[in-house]
Amino acid sequence: MGSIFTKLTAWRRSEPITSPPSVGEAPATAEGKDQEPPMKNRYQRRKSVSAERYDPEADEDEGDQRVVHPKSDEQRKRLSEAVKNILIFRSLDIEQMQEVIDAMFEKKTQPNEHVIDQGDDGDNFYVIDSGTYDIYVDDNLVGAYENQGSFGELALMYNMPRAATIIATSAGSIWAMDRHTFRRIVLKNAFNKRKMYENLLETVPMLKTLEPYERMNVADALISKTYEDGTQIIKQGDTADCMYFVESGEVRITVKNDSNDEKEVNRIKTGGYLGELALLTHKPRAASAYAVGTTKCAVLDVQAFERLLGPCMDVMKRNIDEYEEQLAQVFGSKVEITDLR
């Protein structure tokens, strides 16, 4: 699976559930709390007997009926707020996120209720809406969630037993998604998107110097954004925080001269890229970019850019001369510029 899952697994194992990764903040620690061993759930689930990982490439269930649990407007609002920062939903687009919201169902929790028990089969993935929940591993209190977070994904991804026990310590509400729907929406969509981005990146000349596994890491870091016709993607003079790969559509590049007249200097088509040189030079954007028709771009933020594209830096720097020649053709003389984008 993608690095999103590898990193998540490594996090869970290296920091045994002491903080919810999906919200980026550590939960309350167990310090100062009575560490009473949790009572077993009276609705004991059967133990897992398999550790087979889910393989989305081998999953051919394309015709599955969409799961929809009816919700009020108030419930949809609360759920949308609860899932917006969940790590494993990061690669989903707007339509897929709506499918996630449709597929989840609400469960009210009461104090001392076991949500999941260590060693049991995984049946659902959970997102916390409200309430506090203690985390036990081998009957030891190791952390807590407070009004946010998610848990239960590893058992569904790898068909492994639950790694911890989660017990409600207050009245609260959680959202659940069943195993089959979780795999179909989250895992398979993430897999398909990764393959799509890998195919896109293979067509980018700049990335020819990358090894296949390096392109795979870049694909996992991309976030898709859609721009309507005429929408400004980059503004000349702004601070650079990302670069763009054009998935579909076209991007028009313009530069303002000393008279503040804006002239088109280039067009970037599907498979092209823009915005990288400002990240290289650490200077403001030297051009603007606009969508031509509905345009979809895969966005790579500056942190991922610096971490993943080191082998491509020399190629990108050589492109600066080409951009200066383009400006000379437009404005009639050589223009000193270190970043056309």
Results as ranks from 00 to 15, higher is better:
residue 141 L to F: 05
residue 182 F to M: 12
residue 174 I to C: 13
residue 234 I to Y: 12
residue 170 S to C: 02
residue 133 Y to G: 00
residue 160 M to L: 14
residue 162 R to A: 01
residue 119 G to Q: 01
residue 229 D to T: 12
residue 153 E to A: 14
residue 230 G to R: 12
residue 209 T to M: 13
residue 203 T to K: 15
residue 212 P to L: 11
residue 216 M to H: 13
residue 139 D to V: 03
residue 185 I to A: 02
residue 223 I to H: 14
residue 191 F to S: 08
residue 140 N to M: 13
residue 210 L to P: 06
residue 126 Y to R: 06
residue 206 M to H: 03
residue 168 A to C: 00
residue 212 P to W: 08
residue 139 D to R: 06
residue 167 I to M: 10
residue 205 P to R: 12
residue 134 D to I: 01
residue 156 L to R: 07
residue 189 N to S: 15
residue 121 D to V: 12
residue 118 Q to E: 15
residue 148 Q to W: 06
residue 159 N to A: 00
residue 158 Y to K: 13
residue 151 F to A: 05
residue 117 D to T: 11
residue 114 H to Q: 09
residue 134 D to P: 04
residue 189 N to R: 15
residue 110 Q to M: 14
residue 117 D to G: 04
residue 109 T to S: 15
residue 234 I to S: 10
residue 145 Y to C: 06
residue 156 L to C: 10
residue 137 V to N: 00
residue 129 D to V: 02
residue 113 E to A: 02
residue 171 A to K: 09
residue 160 M to I: 12
residue 165 T to I: 04
residue 185 I to V: 11
residue 118 Q to A: 00
residue 156 L to W: 12
residue 229 D to V: 12
residue 169 T to K: 07
residue 172 G to Y: 08
residue 220 D to C: 08
residue 157 M to S: 06
residue 155 A to H: 05
residue 176 A to G: 01
residue 161 P to A: 01
residue 112 N to F: 05
residue 170 S to G: 00
residue 152 G to R: 14
